[in-house]
Design a binder for these strands. Structure first.
Length: 341
DNA sequence: AGTGCAGGCCAC
DNA sequence: AAACGTGGCCTGCACT
């Protein structure tokens, strides 16, 4: 096939040999023809209708008139919950059209939905476990962590930070949590791989403790066949000594597991303590979405509920684990789940 | 008609 | 060889 996309990129084939038509490919193609954009637009509304608008209505319980999910408490390898039938942990929010799905989740008359979510919990845990003093201090000072990362990496003063530089640092911060590669960062930021590798090299120069944490974690996994959360929960890593493509996946999973798993432990501890803590308050805990708890609360009782639940969440690691970095919880409220965010 | 896979895409 | 972690659900298709 002779088609060459911008930057010399070529269409890709999947494992079956079919040409890929994924959104990233169509995004590139959209710069040279109108059709790919129309396909992307159609795919978006098609996805929203089939997976959410139509499917959610099929899950309305006849007795309660509400949608009820099921949670697997051992569904994810890291200790996260998994939500099924329907999955209420992947309700759209990022696109304007998607947010309209979230607007359909509303509180009963006289009540409000309250969303409390941990702010940057995985980066805080990373700062703690890797012992990165600059990051820990930034969280203590309430500094914008992506801007701080950008400032450190690119030698740009915080008061001269630009959205574009901050965006790149944000992608790097996410990548670090996931076990970054030059290839993956290049794809996400749509920059040359050599530039992406340069960013990563610079990052590890500025925060050498992060690389040490990663190396130590992989070494531990290779020796023991598992890694651990801060609370001591073990996560098996049976593929860690595999050869070939599996090796890379296993290493990245091992790097991510203690961080994601510790965050999962923290919110579980908060959830376990929550019923007793809010006893007597006209509030119900409805959903957990990994770093968020959603409540339905009688109007007039919202402020107190937020105070109580925030306290439980922010102190959920105590007393088993003393974090160097405090946990911080953002709260929102509204008639709909969209408004509560 | 049921099962399973691949590709795709939604969330954190 | 593949290429950033954890999941679930949808459609289309091959297969039994």
């Amino acid at each position: 096939m002779g088609l060459t996309l911008p930057d010399g990129k070529m269409p890709k084939k999947g494992k079956t040999g079919a040409w890929s038509t994924g959104a990233d490919i169509l995004e590139d193609m959209a710069t040279i023809h109108d059709l790919p954009r129309r396909i992307l637009d159609w795919r978006q509304v098609s996805k929203l209708k089939s997976t959410y608008t139509d499917a959610l209505q099929d899950h309305i319980n006849a007795e309660t008139g509400r949608v009820h999910t099921s949670y697997s408490i051992a569904g994810a390898n890291t200790g996260r919950l998994a939500s099924t039938d329907p999955n209420l942990q992947n309700i759209p929010i990022r696109s304007e059209e998607g947010r309209r799905i979230r607007e359909a989740f509303v509180a009963e008359e006289g009540k409000l939905l309250v969303a409390l979510d941990y702010s940057q919990i995985e980066l805080r845990i990373l700062a703690h476990v890797a012992g990165i003093e600059e990051l820990k201090q930034a969280f203590r000072d309430g500094v914008d962590i992506h801007a701080l990362t950008a400032s450190e990496m690119f030698n740009v003063p915080l008061d001269e930070m630009t959205p574009e530089i901050r965006r790149q640092a944000k992608a790097i911060n996410f990548g670090v949590i996931y076990g970054i590669s030059g290839f993956g960062l290049a794809r996400n930021l749509r920059i040359p791989r050599s530039d992406a590798q340069g960013f990563i090299d610079r990052y590890f120069e500025r925060f050498p403790g992060i690389r040490a944490y990663m190396d130590d974690t992989i070494a531990f996994a290779k020796e023991h066949g598992f890694v651990q959360t801060l609370f001591g929960r073990k996560i098996n890593t049976p593929e860690i000594n595999a050869k070939g493509p599996q090796a890379g996946f296993a290493k990245r999973a091992a790097i991510n597991a203690p961080i994601q798993g510790t965050a999962a432990d923290v919110i579980r501890r908060a959830m376990i303590r929550m019923p007793a803590a809010i006893e007597g308050q006209p509030a119900k805990m409805l959903l957990q979405v990994h770093d968020e708890l959603l409540f339905e609360v009688e109007e007039g009782a919202v402020d107190r509920l937020i105070d109580t639940a925030r306290g439980v969440m922010e102190n959920a690691a105590d007393p088993a684990v003393k974090l160097d970095v405090q946990l911080s919880v953002d709260a929102g409220q509204g008639q709909s789940w969209a408004q509560a965010h």
